[in-house]
Design a protein around this nucleic acid. Structure first.
Lengths: 209, 209
DNA sequence: GTATGTGAACTATTTCACAGCT
DNA sequence: AGCTGTGAAATAGTTCACATAC
């Protein structure tokens, strides 16, 4: 089992395995080998076994893994029993996409608040969440016990929004703005930089023969 | 200069530096040290120097880097002189966000086509691009010389859409669907899995004291 | 004195190889 | 025979330390 901390790359893949295992359970497939699971998620069999090794030992030699058992173990270790409240700042297309994305609900992530600076958007509802003025962040985040803040505003306003979120007590930030933002050490930040992803692809296009 | 291939992680950061350098040039700052540049993008000075070392040697000891020179060199090596055509499949909130995102235009990425399967969306225009039926993919991608395809459809339809894109000759795919999709070796695929990003954050929330 | 460029050391992550279980 | 679990080897990526240039 090991009490050591699991590498971030492994954690990310564990969620991937879980997603696949849920599908398998739904199909009433009771057992799967690391090779088969790996093929379904485009990873090697060893990678799968090494990753699952961080969680415990419940594979059966010669047979593979019991899907139900694996599902239970992964859900437990990945904290799927807990629910987290999420607030989205910026109700443009991207913010709306996140608010309406059905995947979050099934993954124990609760979209409980949305903010924007544009007057005409305030008061509108997107997927049951009423958009509020950015000035309401502090009060709302505390009241609604939000732990994850999503920054989906233009680059210029990103740092300011992040500062507001941090001082409201948010513990994690997922940043979609194409800007480098600074937060205190105790706040975990994750950047998803769409234009850099596309640019990196374009680089590899330019540099292959 | 080195002819060796630059690691993907470095390439991604080079785009980050370039973005910052463009800002600096706009502010008429003519010179910058690796430490100052690193601070602006939350990276160490050594990391900056190591990365720039892949591109060439144009820093001046004791002074730093000439911003104009660095800008020119980065633009050249990152292929910013070339323009790539991009097609988006799936015109939901996320697809619309990508189509309207102003950042792409300034980064030599041209959104030239959009597809959806919902009849009521066909014919509508988003940011000058007319949404077409998914059945038109093959013809359009070829005609419009699209090299990058973006998959922004639900998980169930992702593999099918990817197959269509691949057989139309697309060379890269950026996949936003929470599904593992398979493509031939010569096609480069990049996955952006929003719910996994959030889940990974939630894991770290659950496992810190 | 200040700041670059880089080999060497270190750390993280992946892959190999195989012993051991069913 | 088939498949897991895991040390050991290999690879990739980051940080250190310092010689060198201005």
């Amino acid at each position: 089992m090991s009490n050591k901390k699991i590498p971030e790359s492994t954690v990310s893949r564990l969620f991937l395995y879980l997603r696949e295992i849920v599908v398998l359970c739904g199909m009433n497939i009771r057992t799967i080998s690391s090779a088969e699971l790996g093929e379904r998620v485009n990873l090697s069999d060893v990678q799968v076994r090494k990753d699952l090794g961080h969680v415990g030992q419940f594979g059966t030699s010669g047979a593979g893994y019991d899907t139900e058992e694996l599902k239970t173990a992964l859900e437990k270790i990945l904290g799927k029993n807990k629910v987290w409240n999420v607030a989205v700042v910026g109700a443009g297309h991207l913010g709306s996409a996140l608010l309406t994305y059905p995947g979050f609900k099934t993954h124990n992530l609760n979209m409980v608040a949305a903010f924007d600076s544009e007057d005409k958007k305030i008061g509108k509802k997107i997927s049951n969440v009423t958009i509020q003025n950015i000035s309401e962040i502090l009060k709302n985040i505390k009241d609604k016990k939000v732990t994850i803040g999503v920054v989906a505003v233009p680059a210029e306003s990103a740092q300011g929004v992040a500062d507001k979120l941090v001082s409201s007590g948010v513990e994690c930030i997922l940043n979609f703005a194409p800007a480098s933002i600074s937060v205190p050490e105790n706040v975990k930040i994750k950047n998803v930089d769409l234009s850099r992803e596309l640019e990196t692809l374009s680089y590899f296009l330019a540099n292959k023969r």
